[in-house]
Computed example of a mutant assay.
Amino acid sequence: MVSMGMERVREARAGAATSERPVRLWLYGVAALIFAMVVVGGITRLTESGLSITEWAPLLGALPPLSHADWVAAFERYREIPQYRLMNAGMSLEEFRSIYWWEWSHRLLGRLIGVVFALPLVFFWLTGRIPRAHLPRYLVLFALGGLQGVIGWWMVSSGLVNRVDVAPLRLAVHLTLATMIFAAVLWTALTLSSRGRAPRPSPIRRIGAAAVLGWVFVQIFLGALVSGNHAGLVYDSWPLMNGHLVPPDAFTITPLWLDLIENHASIQFLHRMSAYVLFALVLTQFVTIVVTARTATARVSAFALGFVVLFQIMVGIATLLMHVPFALALIHQATAMLVLTAAVVHAVSVFAPGRMEATLLAHEGL
């Protein structure tokens, strides 16, 4: 009787794993698309392409210009904004096409993510693969995706009247929300299994993992402010900023909140200091995990997190010293997403070690 009961338990667990597998793969696919969208968004930013489409048409905007007349009309709308008059006067139609395609691709990815998320969600719910109790979480993720689209237009609209680029604060909000959605989707995929159970680690390790993950978002926000203000170009020396730990022109604008989002010296200084804080948090967490952790996943994820953060710091320093070349700047943004991925994986391995192990075991059958 006992053996029969154990066999039924194993069969139930195998059935649950089979049911979870498509949902997990779907969530991984959505996360990968968000990752790609952030990278394409970085290209859009670095090529100054973000203002090439001057209207928000969530449905009809999915189609690019299909005729020469359509291209001329789109170009005429672009020629009416300050960026063309003050930065790109004399641009040819072919040059306009090159920046248009990047912004259009960025927006298309956003639409694709919405479809790839919504349609399988309906299917998985109707077929019972997503329990009714879990549905609100997925609906919140979908709503955040819609909000991200609205914030994207709010960002673009800031550069159509009195500026030649988008407002840095709005850019930072747009990027940070995208990374939060990515983290939430990845976290959901990694904790999908309810079969694995294990004692929770000590509060110190949980606090450390949460602090690292939270600080990654702070660093991403500050990095977006640096990018939006082109603040990486003002001081291209390291470890000091032109011989100063704190540059003399930092914190000179009043009120202070305006200084923190518009003063190039202040923003770069804060981004540098924040990177050091993040590295210290990661190093402390690594030592804590290696010394006391019971699970191999926590130790491996802590090591991976430390490695990718160190690599990101090296890329950031090289980008600064080489005066922000396109390729390194793009690698820096993409690596930031890898840092976030590592931070999420590590946090899950600390907060839900049993679920993480169940997920790893499930991967063996993929």
Rank of each mutant, 00 (worst) to 15 (best):
R205D: 12
P82E: 00
F303G: 03
L160R: 01
A304H: 12
L225C: 06
G29T: 09
G41E: 04
I331C: 15
R85D: 09
W71I: 02
H363T: 10
G316R: 04
G354Q: 07
T18K: 00
V282C: 05
L112Q: 06
G214E: 03
T47E: 14
R129W: 02
V38P: 07
A16R: 00
A118K: 01
A12V: 03
I331N: 14
T127M: 12
S227G: 08
S92A: 14
T127V: 10
N229V: 04
S67G: 03
Q333D: 10
F35T: 07
W101P: 06
R195K: 09
R200Y: 06
H332K: 13
H271R: 13
N242K: 07
S237A: 02
W215H: 14
T47N: 13
Y78I: 07
S19R: 13
S301C: 11
T252C: 11
F217V: 02
L213E: 05
A296P: 11
R170V: 01
V216I: 10
P353M: 06
L63Q: 10
T319K: 08
G354I: 00
G354D: 07
V212F: 01
V291R: 15
M314G: 15
L109I: 01
V161A: 06
R206F: 07
I313L: 13
E103A: 05
Q83S: 03
A184L: 15
V218I: 14
V246D: 10
V339P: 01
T18D: 02
L330S: 15
V185C: 08
P131I: 13
L222W: 03
L366H: 14
L119F: 13
A343F: 00
S98D: 14
E364F: 13
T47P: 12
A89Y: 05
V339N: 02
A73I: 00
L283A: 15
H134Q: 15
